[in-house]
Design a protein around this nucleic acid. Structure first.
Lengths: 211, 211
DNA sequence: GCCTAGTTACACAGATCTGTGTACCTATTT
DNA sequence: AAATAGGTACACAGATCTGTGTAACTAGGC
């Protein structure tokens, strides 16, 4: 017993005791359940039971379910990290990564769209959902500007439509091919805007090294 | 008992003007409330109170809330009616009519996508949602085949993505311009497939007839 | 040892939800 | 007039949900 300090979760982090950050555990569990089953479908009792804590503990960390919902959406709001790849690769890579996510069993659409669909009139939910959608559009736009595309604003909006369209279609159909279809459409739109895109829209990056 | 003619419910309906079929009234009200506020957000009490009937009457027409939900979705499943217009006009007109719907105050996204988002695991809901999405895709596909487009299947899927993408974006942003953006993208895709599309994607249909 | 902070168990208030039971009412049909 | 069909009023069962109150327990820090 004495020797096995490695495996003892209590000894982790040198000074931190047996606290794997309860707040994070709650949030992580709420995230999973809210996303997979719906916000209205999951009660705070269910979340607490899933972690194995008392409901009281949950309410000691979050004053209300609404606060938990807000934290859930804030947690889902991750900005795309900067990349070394070329703008075209980043744009089209978006759809490859969508295809991977669609193939995962635990994908269930866009959490922001779902939240708006469920909670409708809620102002703060809509606000963060709009901010998220806009941040992605701006990410597209900046990449298009780097590519020298004239109508970067308009094209960025169209690419965002393809992203959300494929997400909505996959939510219903469970068909990762929707991401491929979106990528093909995106390729056509890019070429139409004068962007040079290597190869067809398929998974072939093409061996050419020329610009 | 004698034969049917006098007992025929169709004849009774004709003689009873003040009875617009209670069942239809219930369904219509449920439709409005479910769609605008969410299925889980609306209880049967609310529906009955909105019409001014007793909850008992509602349950005399629908055995359960689930049955009401199914009837709601079935009612929303309207196939596009055949049109005299050219295939191109029909395809692009889809986005014009989306733009009009987005501008209406009571538009709140796709009822099928919303239902799947809310009810997630429910098999029958998913089933009708898939059927609806596929029916629209096939409608696009058949029009594209009439136009002699080679890759009608793939292009139809892409057009469906644009439709659902603009719906999702408008649900969040409340911006009818999303339909215009989708129409512009659709125009590019059609031209790329060899379809002759008159004018730019903007609201300049053509100086000739008003249909 | 003692204090404090976090957690637990558990009861409970109060709201809301689906669905049922029952007796009564009212208009039409026979 | 009697029967029938459909609606009403209203209570109620039973589940579930958010949120609170409270006393007791358990650790680490002083």
């Amino acid at each position: 017993m004495l020797l096995s300090s490695q495996g003892d979760p209590r000894i982790r982090m040198a000074t931190l005791p047996a606290k794997p950050d309860m707040k994070d555990r709650i949030l992580e569990t709420a995230d999973r359940l809210f996303y997979l089953q719906g916000i209205r479908a999951i009660g705070v009792d269910t979340i607490a039971a899933e972690i194995g804590i008392s409901k009281r503990t949950l309410y000691n960390h979050f004053p209300s379910k609404d606060a938990l919902i807000s934290a859930y959406l804030a947690r889902r709001f991750v900005a795309p990290r900067p990349s070394e790849k070329s703008p075209v690769e980043q744009i089209l890579g978006t759809f490859d990564s969508l295809e991977r996510r669609f193939s995962a069993k635990d994908f269930r659409g866009c959490p922001f769209v779902n939240a708006v669909a469920e909670l409708g009139e809620d102002r703060s939910v809509r606000k963060v959902a709009i901010a998220f959608k806009e941040s992605r559009r701006l990410w597209f736009r900046d990449l298009l500007i780097k590519l020298g595309v004239a109508q970067a604003e308009a094209l960025a909006t169209q690419l965002a439509l393809l992203v959300d369209g494929s997400i909505a279609q996959d939510l219903v159909r469970n068909d990762p091919a929707m991401a491929r279809a979106a990528k093909e459409a995106a390729t056509v739109l890019l070429r139409n805007a004068g962007v040079k895109v290597g190869g067809s829209a398929s998974k072939k990056p093409r061996p050419s090294s020329t610009v």
